[in-house]
Computed example of a mutant assay.
Amino acid sequence: MFRLIQLQAQHGVPRIGIDPDGYGSERAALARYRETPDTFSGIGRFDPAGRLAEIIMDTVCGPPGDCPDPAVVVNAVTFQRLCDNHSFGLEVLTLPELALHLGVVVRMAPAMARSGRHAAPDESHSASNRIAREFSAHVDDPVWRMELCAELARTPAAVNGLLIGVGALSHRDVLDLYPALCALGTQLPGGVHADLVRATVRPLSPAGVTALRLGL
């Protein structure tokens, strides 16, 4: 189930407002969102239990006017999507930083090509998907962990794949793989490591679960 959401800051703490109308697909929710982009911040994907599992944000730069550049960050205060030019001099959050603030995976929606068809996913989305897909089978491989950390250093937005991969492990998997998970926790790039440590104050969030399972 997908619903439109609004991100707001209350006393410096991000809050998520949820529209009651539900949509059966990401495409339907995105189409509705693009009819009223100033009203909502993005789309929320909810799991069968009704928990927010993922936030999907549009790639269109948020300030008024027809900005041709894609959004790459969000304003740290208003959560408005911003391109490189409009974000200059402002306090901003990258998508991985926003994900850790909210405790839920955040990604950009597929960009719309001029023909109206979806453009190919960007590099960070592809890396995130690959990390999530390979995580359980390869995390106990020291070489793979080194490659993962290099990927996270090179493509910070791919941290979403780490959150998904770690979160998908069963309790038995965590017990069996705990030495490898802890080893990965010590190898993470400094920025990712610091963000995950901060996320431990929300232990039930995806980022908090990841941090605890990595022994942070």
Rank of each mutant, 00 (worst) to 15 (best):
R154A: 15
W144V: 08
S170V: 00
L177P: 07
R145I: 05
P68D: 13
L100A: 10
D69E: 15
A76M: 04
R114E: 15
C83A: 08
L82D: 08
A150L: 14
S136T: 07
N85P: 00
N75H: 15
L98C: 09
R117I: 10
A76S: 12
V72S: 03
R130E: 13
H138P: 00
V74Q: 03
V73Y: 05
H171I: 10
A71I: 08
V174W: 04
H101Y: 11
V92N: 06
H125Y: 07
S87W: 05
A150F: 14
S126C: 08
M146T: 10
R133Q: 14
A168F: 03
R172W: 02
A120R: 11
A113G: 15
A113L: 15
N75I: 02
E134S: 12
A127E: 11
Q80L: 05
S128M: 09
C83K: 06
R154S: 14
A137L: 01
M112N: 14
N75Y: 00
V92H: 05
V105C: 10
V139C: 03
D84V: 09
P156V: 14
W144M: 05
L90N: 08
L162V: 04
E97W: 00
D176Q: 14
L163Q: 06
A120M: 02
P121I: 02
D140Y: 00
A137N: 07
N75R: 07
N160E: 08
V174D: 03
S128W: 12
L169F: 04
P110V: 08
F88E: 15
G161C: 02
P64R: 14
R107W: 01
N75T: 04
E151D: 12
H86R: 12
R145A: 09
R81I: 05
A158C: 09
L102S: 12
V73A: 03
L148V: 09
A137Y: 02
F135R: 00
L102C: 07
S170C: 02
A127W: 10
V104I: 12
V143G: 06
G65F: 05
Y178T: 01
C83P: 06
S170M: 01
L95R: 02
A99C: 06
S128N: 06
T155H: 01
R107L: 00
H101N: 14
G116C: 13
Q80T: 11
G62Y: 04
V60C: 03
A113T: 14
A111V: 05
A158G: 04
A113M: 13
A71F: 06
L93Y: 03
N129W: 11
D173C: 01
C83I: 07
V159H: 02
R133T: 11
F79D: 09
V74D: 03
V105W: 07
P110I: 13
L98G: 11
S126N: 02
C149R: 10
L162R: 01
H125Q: 15
V143Y: 11
L175N: 10
A113D: 15
D122W: 06
I164H: 08
E151A: 06
E134D: 15
V92W: 01
V143L: 14
H118M: 13
D66C: 03
A168N: 12
N129L: 14
A127P: 02
L152F: 09
D122G: 15
V174F: 00
D140T: 01
F135G: 05
R145K: 09
V72R: 09
D66G: 01
D176V: 13
P156T: 12
G89L: 11
R117K: 07
T155E: 12
